[in-house]
Simulated scan of single mutants.
Amino acid sequence: MSLAFVVVAVALHVLSSLFWAGTTFALSRSGGLGLDALRRPQMAAATAAILSGIALWALLHRGGDGRAEHVLATGAAAALIAALIQFGLLRGGRALRGQRVAAGLLAVAALCMAVARYV
């Protein structure tokens, strides 16, 4: 495993996750103002976050069965469910509801990533 690859994967994961979660939180608080303009960038960021998360899991946690891996898996599941809800409810008033539900799930995902090292 190359250290440079891990650094790039972490940077991609963190930056795309921050954009995805940040825009989700902002859209859910603004009543969906700007939702149409941010739909594609959010989807791209979510895809990048999920794919880089999978790569990081394979590089750093494969075969691990400790508490940290369980917490990270919970966060990953929350993020995947957030993506399914958020991008499955793309039109009309349901899109805003999807953003709000996804915001809560992405907060859970972020919390899990933040505390996984300490459990």
Score class of each variant (00 low, 15 high):
residue 1 M to T: 09
residue 1 M to D: 10
residue 2 S to E: 15
residue 2 S to Q: 13
residue 3 L to Y: 09
residue 4 A to E: 13
residue 5 F to S: 12
residue 6 V to A: 15
residue 6 V to C: 06
residue 7 V to I: 14
residue 7 V to G: 04
residue 8 V to T: 14
residue 8 V to Y: 13
residue 11 A to R: 02
residue 12 L to T: 14
residue 12 L to Y: 05
residue 13 H to C: 10
residue 13 H to L: 10
residue 13 H to Q: 09
residue 14 V to F: 15
residue 15 L to W: 08
residue 15 L to M: 10
residue 17 S to G: 14
residue 20 W to S: 02
residue 23 T to G: 07
residue 24 T to F: 03
residue 24 T to N: 01
residue 26 A to V: 02
residue 28 S to P: 00
residue 29 R to M: 12
residue 29 R to A: 14
residue 31 G to T: 04
residue 32 G to L: 05
residue 33 L to Y: 11
residue 34 G to D: 03
residue 34 G to Q: 03
residue 34 G to S: 05
residue 35 L to I: 07
residue 37 A to V: 07
residue 37 A to T: 05
residue 38 L to V: 08
residue 39 R to E: 06
residue 40 R to P: 00
residue 41 P to M: 04
residue 43 M to L: 12
residue 44 A to N: 00
residue 45 A to Q: 03
residue 47 T to I: 11
residue 49 A to G: 13
residue 50 I to N: 04
residue 51 L to P: 01
residue 52 S to I: 06
residue 54 I to C: 04
residue 56 L to R: 04
residue 58 A to P: 00
residue 59 L to F: 15
residue 60 L to A: 13
residue 60 L to F: 06
residue 60 L to W: 02
residue 61 H to D: 11
residue 62 R to H: 11
residue 62 R to F: 14
residue 63 G to I: 08
residue 63 G to Q: 08
residue 64 G to K: 11
residue 65 D to N: 12
residue 65 D to K: 11
residue 65 D to G: 13
residue 68 A to R: 11
residue 68 A to I: 00
residue 69 E to I: 08
residue 69 E to K: 02
residue 69 E to F: 07
residue 70 H to S: 10
residue 71 V to A: 00
residue 72 L to C: 02
residue 75 G to A: 09
residue 75 G to R: 04
residue 79 A to Y: 03
residue 79 A to I: 02
residue 80 L to R: 02
residue 81 I to R: 01
residue 83 A to L: 08
residue 84 L to Q: 05
residue 84 L to V: 14
residue 86 Q to G: 13
residue 87 F to P: 03
residue 88 G to I: 07
residue 88 G to R: 04
residue 89 L to M: 12
residue 89 L to Y: 10
residue 91 R to L: 04
residue 93 G to M: 09
residue 94 R to D: 12
residue 94 R to T: 09
residue 95 A to E: 02
residue 95 A to C: 03
residue 97 R to G: 07
residue 98 G to R: 05
residue 98 G to K: 07
residue 98 G to I: 06
residue 100 R to N: 11
residue 101 V to Q: 09
residue 102 A to Y: 08
residue 103 A to D: 05
residue 103 A to T: 04
residue 104 G to E: 11
residue 105 L to N: 03
residue 105 L to C: 08
residue 107 A to H: 04
residue 107 A to L: 14
residue 108 V to H: 00
residue 109 A to I: 01
residue 110 A to Q: 04
residue 112 C to R: 02
residue 112 C to S: 13
residue 112 C to F: 03
residue 112 C to M: 11
residue 113 M to L: 10
residue 114 A to M: 11
residue 114 A to Y: 10
residue 116 A to L: 02
residue 117 R to F: 10
residue 117 R to S: 10
residue 118 Y to H: 12
residue 119 V to T: 11
